[in-house]
Nucleic acid binder design. Structure first.
Lengths: 223, 223
DNA sequence: CGCGATATTGACTACAGTCAATTTCCGTGG
DNA sequence: CCACGGAAATTGACTGTAGTCAATATCGCG
């Protein structure tokens, strides 16, 4: 989940296994709070999330944290650069993943469809990261929060009343670190969205978007 | 050129042709100010910059601009997502590039070394974009400018006195749009760096870094 | 029901943005 | 080579958005 400008050009959510690619895969489970890998680790496998949500993070020396992305079912994570992981990855809630050998990306391991699917995923990742750069570089706090909620509800929410409902597995602090903000600013943006009637909260972790169109407008799309 | 946290893990600057890969390449020239491609164009070719500097940009609907990266010699640009370009690309100064067919990325066109080199470049691009996200999300204005100048002088500058010297082909406005700042803020950061003795200007476009260590410190590295 | 963690709100601060006025740069032409 | 003029960069004064620090409020789990 790379939350970007518009919800329209999101990656296909199908699992590779649904495309008939089952070779070389290995089911893997991670409990909430457990790490799947850490920055600097040698990349042995790539993973496709099949259930749950994971979190990819980086830290500066002094402890400042940036959440690079959230991995939802369908997302492929763990791409190497110079053979190593450049983020930490841990699970926000219990998650299961499908593991592929790293060589599946390089050569396909004799499975051209898998090779191609992983390459496509890598290319989408570049674009997704560019979207994130655009958001952090040029959007206001409210626009960032609206963009975030817009993508999440559109892609992973369920219909509810006339709008959409979704449970957020990440804390305000995770959202803040993803959007380059503080928890207080995220909280205030939530309040603004609530008071303007765009959405409401059902507990702290579940949001109900009543006016998806207004939310999309506030997200300030790029095309 | 993706300017990141540390100058250490920059991509190798060698040209693919130096790796013995010459097949399927086509020399291309772009004059300063001319576009190589635009957002939305179908991707026909990938390019490796061989001379000059190009600029990759995105716009929001309302005109806000984000410079995604600067392409220096050795950099590979033009990776497709869903078959299309997601940035504009134009030249800051007269540039030459080596063009590869898009299929060289997908299959290698019977040239495994080229295929591998392009894949590696795509993976480095993911990591570079993540670095950029970290910078925009969590660094101060001065840290961003210091990071930017640190990478540029380290990777593309020439030795000069006890420090390094480099000519900047991009305007303050380009730097601002790359770093998510305004031209005034970039200008003030330059002034701060000058007054602290870290660097000096020789005209508006040429900087001389006198204390690379101090500059690196101000860049706030990530490891 | 109670408690610790998380989220929200409030008051104030500060960093970067805005708007405007110079100043400097640098290409052009005399 | 120097002078001119438009563009780019710098500086200044002020504003505003988001950050900081601190005090509740709410959540949700045991």
């Amino acid at each position: 989940m790379y939350v970007t400008l518009t919800a329209e050009n999101r990656p296909p959510r199908g699992l590779l296994t649904e495309h008939g690619v089952t070779a070389a895969g290995l089911p893997t489970a991670v409990r909430a709070g457990q790490h799947l890998y850490r920055e600097g680790d040698t990349v042995e496998r790539l993973y496709q999330v099949t259930r749950g949500v994971v979190r990819l993070t980086r830290m500066l020396e002094d402890g400042r944290r940036q959440v690079i992305s959230f991995g939802y079912p369908g997302d492929i994570i763990g791409f190497p650069s110079d053979g190593r992981h450049h983020t930490d990855c841990d699970a926000l809630v219990d998650a299961t993943l499908f593991a592929y050998r790293r060589s599946a990306l390089d050569s396909g391991d004799g499975d051209p469809a898998l090779h191609r699917a992983l390459l496509e995923a890598a290319l989408r990742e570049i674009s997704a990261m560019q979207d994130h750069v655009m958001m952090l570089g040029r959007k206001s706090a409210l626009e960032r929060v609206a963009s975030f909620l817009n993508v999440l509800t559109t892609c992973y929410g369920e219909d509810f009343d006339l709008g959409r409902r979704i449970e957020l597995p990440m804390s305000r602090s995770d959202i803040a670190d993803f959007l380059g903000l503080t928890t207080e600013t995220v909280s205030r943006a939530f309040t603004t969205l609530r008071k303007s009637g765009v959405m409401s909260l059902d507990g702290a972790q579940t949001i109900v978007v009543h006016d998806p169109g207004a939310l999309a407008d506030m997200a300030a799309g790029d095309d």
